[in-house]
Simulated scan of single mutants.
Amino acid sequence: MDKDISFLNEEQKQFLNNYVKTKKLEAFNKIQTEASTGYAGFEHASSEDLQLMIDEWVLIDYIDNGFVDKNTPCECGRPLRYQYIVRNNKSGEVKRLGINHFEEHISLKNHVVKQIKKEFDLIEKEITEILERTSMNWVIENEIAYIPDDYKFNSTVNIKKQLDIGLALSARQVNHLRKEVNQKIFSKNKTIKTSTTEVSNIVLFNDEVSEMNFSVSSLTEIQKEKIMDLYNRGVKSPMVICELLIENKIAPSHRYATGKPRIFPHVCIFLENINGS
């Protein structure tokens, strides 16, 4: 982060450093997954989940020294401030690169590199926004008037810790939180037992919901076993699980007009049953 962070305490600095690292890993691997599968629908997948579907190079680590350091060079020998560590999923080879040498050293296509750089720029802009808001003593109450006492923050997003240590949220994070809080209130008022982590996926089906009778019984025993195996290995994203089932010929590749696999709702319900057991 090439920004003024002198007003932050050490915990806040470390949090933002980890945030940037996590977001860059997710962005790189999401774009690589989309390039590998030809499908853009992995917004809620973790970097670890995405790595399972990438045929070649995945981003496994990211270092920001704060200055150009000869101890963190690119493969070509050029000293770097920002070093990106990638691994080839087929050969296991590891390379350490500067962002401008993705094409030269690992043969990423030009349009893929451009998209990666674009996503990285958006991450840096979000950090700038968080810093500016924090310096102006931003408070969540000015953005979201009411958060239920029993609201459970999504632990994977880590917004609660960000607020607890005194860091502001970006506009993107506020919108994400507002959507989840509103859904919690709506669900409570309507006494609908719906998982807030899956509701954004479910509403995308629109009239497609009426086509199918969503139930666990719609899955074969082989599909259930594979889902359980992936779940126990730490793969929690239903979209990633669906794509892995399709890739391994365990599920048909039929999709809705939205691009979502038709097996997706069945996988969601199966995962809900696992989580609720």
Results as ranks from 00 to 15, higher is better:
207 D>H: 07
248 N>Y: 07
193 K>Q: 15
239 M>L: 07
187 S>E: 13
260 K>H: 06
228 M>C: 01
210 S>I: 06
214 F>D: 07
205 F>Q: 03
215 S>W: 06
214 F>Q: 09
239 M>S: 11
220 T>C: 11
196 T>D: 13
247 E>M: 04
185 I>W: 04
237 S>W: 04
248 N>F: 05
262 R>Q: 11
227 I>G: 01
193 K>G: 12
214 F>K: 06
183 Q>N: 13
186 F>K: 12
206 N>T: 08
253 S>N: 13
207 D>T: 06
192 I>D: 11
247 E>F: 00
220 T>I: 11
211 E>K: 15
215 S>H: 14
196 T>I: 15
250 I>F: 06
186 F>P: 03
227 I>A: 05
189 N>M: 15
221 E>Y: 07
219 L>S: 06
257 A>P: 00
235 V>I: 14
230 L>M: 11
238 P>C: 03
233 R>E: 12
230 L>H: 00
210 S>G: 10
184 K>T: 07
240 V>T: 15
184 K>H: 15
198 E>R: 11
226 K>Y: 11
230 L>V: 00
240 V>N: 01
251 A>Q: 06
204 L>D: 08
191 T>K: 14
245 L>Q: 05
253 S>A: 11
222 I>K: 13
202 I>R: 12
210 S>P: 01
227 I>L: 05
260 K>S: 06
258 T>A: 00
186 F>E: 11
187 S>L: 12
188 K>Q: 15
221 E>P: 02
252 P>T: 10
242 C>I: 02
188 K>I: 04
256 Y>T: 02
234 G>W: 06
216 V>T: 15
252 P>D: 14
219 L>N: 01
220 T>L: 12
224 K>I: 08
220 T>K: 08
